[in-house]
Amino acid sequence: MPDSTRKTRVNKSLLSDRFEKPIEWLIKICGWSSLAALTAILIFILKGAGPMISKINWVEFFTSTKWVPSPGTGNEPHYGILAMLVGTLSTTALALLISVPLGLAAAVYISEFATGKVKEFLKVLLELLAAIPSIVWGFIGLMVLAPLIQNWFGVQQGRNLLNGGIVLGLMSVPLIVSLSEDALRAVPDAYREAALALGASKWEIVFRVLFPAARNGLLAAVMLGLGRAIGETMAALLATGHANQIPSAITDPVRTITATIAAEMGEAPKNSDHYHVLFILGLVLFVITGVVNVVADLVIKGTKKHV
């Protein structure tokens, strides 16, 4: 075919096509970027934690509340993160206690009741709320909520567990609402119509049909909200009061793992034990949030297989 060979030659002379092979290679390499980044993060966190991984007393690490990372000369350092773990988990739990019921209810309203302009408006508003950066939430905790809490509860320290819970709760709401709404919307309309034809009320449809059908998606939404709240740094640093203790009341100040790293890394001398231990805290966070996210991902995959 002399004709087609001529055409082929013309084709290859096009400038944009001469780069086709290199570009395809580049695309394939970039395709791996997310896994590469994730691996690099793990490697550098492990490298930063370095010698302390084997030097540290892991039992004390998880069971002691004593955190004395850079003691005066002659004193023993102590690395116990129990109080911080409790601080992280209690603020997260409080945050979810606020954001999950409200978020689910809001998602039900947006997906099942709101129509037209109202729906559009609410979704845009939630998107804008999701965009407010964590340092601004920290500012809200410090400058707006703290004085209010001091007044209402008559406590000295307005930056405490309650403050942190409210701030982290409000922060994770937009994520929970938008993911739950996605999950509810994914339930086929046929389910709603069938239930309606059987004489079910809207209320019954939501509780007996939609929630069971969207169970996995809703669970994933809650888990991702949980991951977000655990990993939140600046807001937690500024709103919780940053006191290394196990709280006995909701108005006690607490301290989170994230805040500890943010507050102490600047002062820890490079390659000191303190510096390495802060990387171990990062490793703990990386593992916790990683597990939460992967489980959420598997749960979502489960939904897709079902529907």
């Binding site: 896994l35 550098f44 966190i45 930063g48 600046m234 890394m265 990062g282 990386f286 949030t289 991902d297």
Partner: peptide, 25 residues
């Protein structure tokens, strides 16, 4: 699928861990 999980996991890495990574790397 592994790359997909990698993308969602990367999105879930706390910002302070990114900070440690940036410092180290």
């Amino acid at each position: 699928r592994a790359i997909g999980v990698g993308v969602t996991s990367l999105a879930g890495v706390p910002s302070i861990v990114h900070a440690l990574f940036g410092l180290g790397a």
